[in-house]
């Protein structure tokens, strides 16, 4: 019990208190402590990478071994991961001269980057479908959301100036309204949310430091 629960909680409290206190001390030692801890965290996080690789690989190996539905696709995870690690290690040990092709960089540039950028760009479609979903909900809240969204979105496209000039006799009318929504109600909500989140996050930190909240440590046995 002591080793599994109490001691980890004592470590949380001690290291947390030191982290809190050092932030108020301008002494150079305090800065050194901070950078030492930052390097500790990077090293521990680095070991975490092994856990991650193991977890993902284990899941796919199990799929392949048990011939679960779609197990064949799991092979591609291995092709990607082993390919990248092998070319990376080759580059580290043997070295890749300027004239040669670094396959590690190649894989990054022609597989990872385009895939990431494409997935990111799918948001353009999803923004539209999410807006449509909201459109179908007929209540006050959804109406306000949609109204504000349409005005602000419209305020950011060039045509709104022409429409503003034509309808309101002021080319900046729609832009002004859009800006007012961003500068006033939007800012108010951001502040309210941030203040509330701030208090809640501090309360949570206090609960963690004092060991009131310890789910992350798992069970006592």
């Amino acid at each position: 019990m002591f080793l599994k629960r109490t001691l980890p909680l004592l470590i949380v409290f001690t290291i947390g208190s030191l982290a809190f206190v050092h932030d108020f001390i301008p002494h150079p030692l305090s800065g050194e402590f901070r950078s030492e801890m930052a390097s500790w965290m990077m090293i521990i996080g680095g070991f975490g990478m092994f856990l991650g690789v193991y977890s993902l690989m284990h899941m796919h190996i199990t799929r392949i071994r048990q011939k679960m539905a779609g197990w064949g696709y799991s092979v591609f995870v291995f092709i990607g991961a082993v390919g990248m690690i092998a070319t990376g290690v080759y580059g580290d040990i043997v070295g890749v001269s300027k004239d040669d092709i670094d396959l590690f960089d190649w894989g990054y540039k022609y597989i990872q980057v385009p895939c990431g950028a494409t997935i990111f760009s799918i948001l353009a479609f999803f923004v539209a479908s999410a807006a449509f979903r909201t459109f179908r909900a007929k209540n006050m809240a959804a109406g306000l959301l949609l109204g504000a969204a349409v005005i602000v979105m419209f305020g950011r496209v060039p045509i709104c100036e022409a429409v503003g000039g034509w309808v309101f006799n002021d080319r900046q009318a729609i832009v002004n309204v859009a800006n007012a929504i961003m500068n006033y109600p939007n800012l108010a909500v951001k502040r309210g949310l941030l203040l509330g989140i701030g208090l809640a996050a501090i309360a949570q930190s206090v609960r963690v430091l004092f060991g009131v909240e310890r789910t992350y440590l798992g069970g006592a046995d």
């Binding site: 990478m49 991650g52 690789v53 993902l56 696709y73 799991s74 092979v75 591609f76 995870v77 291995f78 092709i79 990607g80 991961a81 082993v82 390919g83 990248m84 690690i85 990376g88 590690f104 894989g107 990054y108 597989i111 990872q112 895939c115 990431g116």
Partner: peptide, 12 residues
């Protein structure tokens, strides 16, 4: 799956 693998290798 290829993307997941490449990203994992890159991260490692």
């Amino acid at each position: 799956n290829l993307y997941v693998g490449v990203a994992l290798g890159y991260m490692a």
